[in-house]
Write a protein that binds this DNA or RNA. Structure first.
Length: 424
RNA sequence: GGUGAGGUGGCUGAGUGGUCGAAAGCAGCGCUUUGCUAAAGCGCCGUACUCCAAAAGGGUACCGAGGGUUCGAAUCCCUCCCUCACCGCCA
């Protein structure tokens, strides 16, 4: 959520920044929110005046009564004021809600350093790591490998839950577990994150806090008449962990890591990347979340991204880091790096992590603040990044590890977790 | 699922219809005294919104949330949420 004061005081700046996202309707919302804001304040000011009158007169009534004097005239006029208040109160509440609704629908301002562009084709490559492997022909993709070695069973998973679900089996299930364990250990032991194991079902307010709602409700799985939602990412429960709190500055930055399954409807994605396990309705992910002071959030974004990259380096999987241009930036993000692993089977890079700084956009929605050294309450900055999303790492790993004899080599660092040097 | 108790400021805790944004204590900040510490005394010490060009200074709202009763609600009534205790059920 943007700061209404910033919009009021620097409307042109806000519009210019918003325009870099390339969505005219969003820019138009600024004028709308300004109009509603003026209305709201007008109603509120009038209401406050009436409340002040009522308060003063009511006290007078109290005084008269205790002295045994008649207060009937006063009571009549206060009753009239009460009627006016009821009327005006409705107006004030309505405009306030309207304003809130509008503010919740306006995306974050891209950071000044975010590259300007209209779609993913304009995302610059920031850096690359590793050499693409020279694999013996024919190169099999993960779906073929998985079927041949019985690592997962998509047909039978469909019997359970429909298309878009994975059932890992045997060595595949073990590999999945090994990867999760490996990632959690890396981030807790070497990168200083606190491990969390949060609920997978979260309340509506939390989904609003991290910007999944209200705009993207059709992509979410809801329960109990949509008062609870299956979290599409651990970002939701973990970032909201401290919602509505004022944290001591000395406790920042907070660094959390959590493994959770992630649930996504992927509405409108039918037919896209449907082969194998690249795009599914439920997948495992290890997620990192940071809550920081504003001054440090961009330095923390760099280290967060480096922490995610480290996973691929240790797994010896080539990858590249791209930065999202303004037109491709997520709704709440000011700046985002995507990490894409090389998939020999797809002959393409696959997104396995998205590391974003939301600045105070989420914090404002969840009222997450900290007390600075001067004792002032200020909004925190929040960040998150996958570290990493499992199925695509799984796919890249088995594709990259395929051997001429049909077996799959397990990266050295993962072997202690997997318990064997290869799958065959 | 059932029954009971309860949700007040950073914390503890008083307040059961009027001048209560809320006693008192603790913690915190400032000053005085002091060689330092301690102790003592005095003062300050919530948040949000809003008015004013701004500062100074006003105003309104907030005692879990939302509604209601009333001239007036932290206080009375209703609904919901949450916490705790016990019972039932259960991985």
């Amino acid at each position: 959520m943007l700061d209404i004061r910033l919009i009021r005081e620097q409307a042109d700046f806000v519009k210019d920044r918003l325009a870099t996202r390339g969505v005219d309707e969003d820019v138009a919302k600024i004028d709308e929110v300004l109009r509603v804001d003026a209305e709201r304040r007008k109603a509120e000011t009038a209401l406050q005046q009436l409340n002040a009158d009522r308060k003063r007169l009511s006290r007078e009534i109290g005084g008269k009564r205790s002295r045994g004097e008649s207060s009937e005239e006063l009571e009549t006029s206060v009753r009239e004021i009460g009627d006016q208040i009821a009327l005006l109160n409705e107006e004030a509440t309505a405009t306030e809600e309207q304003q809130k609704e509008l503010l919740l629908a306006i995306p974050n301002l891209p950071h000044a350093a975010a590259p300007i562009g209209k779609d993913p084709s304009e995302n610059p490559v920031v850096r690359s790591w590793g050499e693409k492997p020279d694999l013996p022909e024919p190169v099999l993709d993960h779906a073929a490998l998985g079927t041949r070695l019985k690592l997962f069973d998509l047909e039978r998973a469909a019997k359970l839950s429909g298309s878009g679900f994975i059932c890992f089996t045997g060595a595949g299930a073990k590999l999945e577990r090994a990867l999760i364990h490996f990632m959690l250990d890396l981030h807790t032991r070497e990168h200083g994150y606190l491990e969390m194991s949060p609920p997978f079902l979260v309340r509506r307010d939390c989904m609003i806090g991290t910007t999944q709602l209200p705009k993207f409700e059709e992509d979410m799985y809801g329960l109990e008449e949509n008062q609870l939602f299956l979290a599409p990412t651990a970002e939701v429960p973990v970032t909201n962990f401290h919602r509505e709190e004022i944290l001591p500055a000395s406790e920042l930055p907070k660094k959390f890591v959590a493994y959770t399954p992630c649930f996504r409807r992927e509405a409108g994605s039918a037919g896209r990347e449907t082969r194998g396990i690249i795009r599914v309705h439920q997948f495992d992910k290890v997620e990192m979340v940071k809550i920081t002071a504003p001054e440090n959030s961009y330095a923390e974004l760099e280290s967060l991204t480096a922490n995610a990259e480290r996973v691929l380096q240790l797994l010896e999987l080539p990858y590249r880091v791209i930065e999202l241009c303004t037109g491709d930036l997520g709704f709440g993000s000011a700046r985002t790096y995507d990490i894409e692993v090389w998939s020999p089977g797809q002959n393409a890079y696959l997104e396995v992590s998205s590391c974003s700084n939301f600045e105070d956009f989420q914090a404002r929605r969840m009222n997450l603040r900290f007390k600075d050294t001067e004792g002032k309450n200020r909004f925190c900055h929040t960040l998150n990044g996958s570290g990493l999303a499992l199925p695509r790492v799984f796919a890249a790993l088995i594709e990259t590890g395929q051997q001429p004899d049909g077996s799959i080599a397990i990266p050295e660092k993962l072997q202690p977790y997997f318990g064997a040097p290869e799958i065959r």
